[in-house]
């Protein structure tokens, strides 16, 4: 089973087995049974100055989806502690001129945390869609700024309504018709066009060189990789002719 190589939380099993009394709040918040003070920011002593620390992969979304909210909440703090520990160890290794073993562990924890957050958001979104009729995410909308460029504006929560908030209105000028940006828009569009044109030219030139070098080129693969290049057109170009008998 691919499940065998798993991550990160050496104490996850302990957590699942512990049963905390429900009404004592402070007891519930503990995520681990170990208390080593500041030394919890450092790895186990036997992992110091070793060449490699072997660990498995990160948590996948599908594995997190079958866990209860409580488990996810605990796992989050396990991962957070692990990440703090890894970053501390990395910093300390740098200070001691040592090599930090398996730096990809940081990315694995990060990925797990991202996946966990996605799963929690999914669950919350399902609740809000069902109960409130809108997803509980931060709202936003597509607006145009003073330069006529569209962007997605993510809204903020305010205590006073919009018409009273003159300070906000001064700083945010969305969707205002501005007659003075024609020249800018023209140049901006030209810039975008030029980048596109140059990249197409570069691709075409590259394909011509490929055709020159490789007599048995797989044209389907070329078409797939460089979709903008018109191969029928460039086939008879002088640049395409190679040093071989066609």
């Amino acid at each position: 089973m691919a499940f065998q190589m798993l991550t990160k939380c050496r104490i996850f099993k302990n957590i699942l087995n512990t049963k905390c009394p429900i009404n004592i709040r402070s007891n519930c918040f503990h995520i681990s049974t170990v208390h080593c003070d500041l030394m919890e920011f450092f790895d186990n002593k036997k992992n110091w100055a070793v060449e490699q620390v072997k660990v498995g992969r990160s948590w996948k979304k599908d594995e997190l989806r079958i866990k209860s909210n409580e488990d996810l909440h605990k796992l989050w703090f396990v991962l957070l502690k692990e990440r703090n520990m890894l970053l501390t160890m990395e910093h300390e290794c740098k200070a001691q001129f040592e090599l930090f073993p398996n730096p990809e562990r940081i990315d694995k924890v990060d990925e797990s945390m991202q996946n966990l957050e996605t799963v929690v958001r999914e669950r919350n979104k399902a609740y809000y869609d069902l109960e409130v009729g809108e997803c509980g995410e931060r709202p936003g909308k597509l607006v145009t700024n003073l330069l006529g460029v569209n962007f997605f504006y993510r809204k903020f929560e305010h205590l006073i309504p919009k018409f009273l908030n003159s300070n906000w209105k001064k700083r945010h000028t969305h969707n205002v018709v501005n007659g003075n940006i024609e020249k800018f828009q023209k140049l901006y569009r030209e810039k975008l066009h030029n980048t596109k044109r140059k990249s197409n030219n570069r691709d075409r030139n590259h394909v011509m060189h490929l055709m020159k070098r490789f007599p048995n080129l797989d044209m389907d693969a070329v078409k797939q990789q460089y979709p903008t290049v018109d191969i029928e057109k460039i086939k008879n170009y002088h640049k395409v002719r190679g040093h071989y008998v066609p």
Partner: peptide
């Protein structure tokens, strides 16, 4: 499996119970 890995059994265990609550409400 290394010491830091979660055991297979713990990963495969299904603890999710669908309730009409958000994550925050349940916690």
């Amino acid at each position: 499996e290394s010491e830091k890995d979660t055991k297979t059994m713990d990963v495969q265990e299904i603890t999710f119970l669908p309730l009409l609550k958000t994550f925050e409400m349940e916690i």
